[in-house]
Amino acid sequence: MVIFNYYLFKQSIITFIYFYIPERLNKMLQSILSNLAIILLFHLSMSMVMNHKKKIPTSLFQITMIIVGSVAVISMFYLPIRFNHYWVDMRMIPLIFIAYIHGWKKALPTLLIASVWRFFMGGAGMVPGILFGMIGPTLIALAFHHRSKFNKNYIEGIVIIIACWLFSDFPIIYIIPNGWEIFKSTAFIRGSSFVITATILYMFITQDRQRRTLNEELEKLATEDPLTNLFNKRKFYEVVHRKITTLQPKHFLAMLDIDHFKQINDTHGHLVGDKILVLLSNILIKYRNERVTIGRYGGEEFIIYIGNSTNDEAKEMIEEIIQEIRSASFPIGNSKTIQITVSIGLTEMNDHLSLLSNVNQADQNLYMAKRKGRDCLICR
């Protein structure tokens, strides 16, 4: 029954548009909806490109964004909206949003491509169309780019759209004969169509940004240790497994454990223990690079991967870490500090063993370092 009623409602809307709306207004609405469809397709394409940003080389990403914007603007040249004897389109809306959100690096190339295309199309409205319908609105939006954090600032967005629309209508008012009369007779429908279309796009972009931000936060929670911001164990294994197939010739794994950490927690409290874990991770992060990956293994244990290195280079780096931690002062509050030491087990990875087996070998070396008296490195 619900489906049947919806079908009747849909049919009644179509019937109303085709039989009760005047033909001139009907064609105008169809043109407006065509422009809206292009703009929403533009958003969909931009969103798809943004979703794959991490997988696309930076230069290709920039070029793709510029092409998508240029195609959207150029497409609307061929779908003008007729107001009496005056023809317009919504070309400025994609330009405004590209400028407002992405800045000049994407907006100006898009503007240049679309302007050149419009120039070669020619026609009486070519010059004012480029100056007032494209260049002006783009520059206005660029002036607000630094504020484009999209914290649901709808009012500012609407004000920018209205300002750009009024600027684009300058030729109507001051150049076309009887321009002020034409402007007054078309201002409501033109202004409302621009504002409604831009608001719809604004809402889509806002929701898309919020979704993307949420996905990034969820991905971060799934791959990072929330206390130290290092890789968690699962992400560490994933990254290292990928690296051992590309980096040559040797790979090393090190397991690091804070000496007497339980005693620190029992004496100073778990908040101090957490603070020490954070400060220690900050020291380790300084050694992170393309060849070195660091993760929190669990508790007070950390794991380090060193790729494309020699035995001496790997040992030298681990010894440097031990020495830096040994000489550091860790504040615990009330202007007090404590010293800590770490024990580390280092192993050269065996290509014939699994990653977990190599981790187990580094872990065995770590416990040998603890049995030896701690504050040292064991490498076998």
Rank of each mutant, 00 (worst) to 15 (best):
P171V: 06
R147K: 14
E217Y: 10
S193A: 11
T186Q: 10
I182K: 11
F183C: 05
N229R: 15
F204R: 00
A222H: 11
G179D: 05
N153E: 12
N178H: 13
K233T: 11
E156Y: 06
L230W: 11
T213K: 10
E216I: 08
D208L: 09
G179L: 06
K149D: 08
L227P: 10
K233Y: 14
R209M: 13
F183K: 01
Y174M: 09
N232H: 13
H145E: 07
S185R: 07
R190I: 09
I205W: 00
D225E: 11
I205L: 07
I196A: 09
E181T: 12
L218W: 02
T197W: 02
E216N: 12
K184S: 09
C164F: 06
T197Q: 00
S168G: 09
N215S: 14
Y174L: 15
G191S: 06
K149P: 02
E217P: 01
T223K: 14
R212T: 14
L166D: 04
T199K: 04
E219W: 03
I182S: 08
F188E: 06
E224R: 15
R211C: 07
M203P: 01
F236A: 03
S148L: 02
W180D: 05
F194A: 14
Y202H: 04
E219Q: 14
V159C: 12
I196Y: 04
L227F: 11
S192K: 02
E224M: 13
T199H: 04
N178F: 11
G191A: 04
R209K: 12
Q207V: 06
S192Y: 12
L218P: 07
K184H: 09
R147T: 11
Q210W: 00
A163D: 00
D169V: 02
S192V: 14
N151E: 10
I175A: 05
A163L: 15
N229W: 15
R147G: 10
T206S: 07
K149V: 07
I205C: 02
A222N: 07
